[in-house]
Lab assay of single mutants.
Amino acid sequence: KWEEIAERLREEFNINPEEAREAVEKAGGNEEEARRIVKK
């Protein structure tokens, strides 16, 4: 599940997989929260 979210974030925000994974981890697997983290 987290991998899927990280993949979507990576494609959408054009970030590297590591950044995407970190955002999802910080968000506890919550996609909306992960998006907010990435946008900062």
Rank of each mutant, 00 (worst) to 15 (best):
K39P: 03
A20K: 00
P17E: 14
R36H: 08
V38F: 06
E33T: 08
K1P: 10
A27G: 04
I5F: 04
K40D: 15
I37S: 07
R35K: 08
F13H: 03
E7G: 08
A27V: 04
I5L: 08
N14V: 05
E4W: 10
I37F: 10
K26E: 11
R21M: 14
N14R: 02
E25L: 15
V38L: 15
R36A: 14
V24A: 05
E11H: 12
E22T: 08
R35W: 10
E25P: 00
R36K: 12
A6E: 11
E19N: 05
N30W: 05
E12R: 03
E25D: 09
E11C: 09
W2F: 08
E31S: 04
A34M: 01
I5G: 01
A34G: 02
R21H: 07
E7M: 13
V38W: 04
G29D: 02
G28W: 11
G29A: 02
F13D: 01
F13R: 01
R10C: 14
E31F: 12
I37L: 11
R10Y: 06
R21D: 05
I5Y: 02
R35M: 05
R21P: 01
E31I: 09
E11M: 15
R35Q: 04
K39D: 12
E22N: 13
I15S: 03
E12Y: 07
I5N: 01
G28N: 15
G28T: 05
K1S: 14
K1W: 10
R21T: 09
L9Y: 03
R35Y: 06
A6K: 05
E19K: 08
E18G: 10
V38N: 01
A6H: 04
F13M: 07
N14H: 08
N30F: 06
K1I: 11
W2S: 05
E11R: 13
E33V: 14
E32N: 05
I5R: 02
A20P: 00
E25G: 06
A27H: 01
F13W: 05
E11N: 13
E25S: 10
R35L: 05
L9E: 00
E4T: 07
L9R: 00
N16L: 13
E22D: 13
W2T: 08
L9N: 00
A23C: 04
E18F: 10
R8F: 05
K39Q: 15
A20Y: 00
R10A: 14
V38S: 03
I5C: 03
R8A: 06
L9H: 00
K1N: 14
N30E: 06
V38D: 02
E22P: 02
I5H: 01
E25Q: 13
N16A: 11
E7R: 12
G29Y: 06
R8P: 01
G28D: 12
W2R: 05
E7P: 00
G28S: 11
N14Q: 11
W2P: 04
N16D: 14
R8D: 03
K1E: 14
I37A: 08
K40Y: 14
R21F: 11
E11G: 09
A23F: 05
R8I: 07
N16F: 07
N14D: 11
I15L: 11
E4N: 10
I5E: 02
N16R: 09
E7V: 12
E11Q: 15
G29M: 03
K39S: 14
E22F: 11
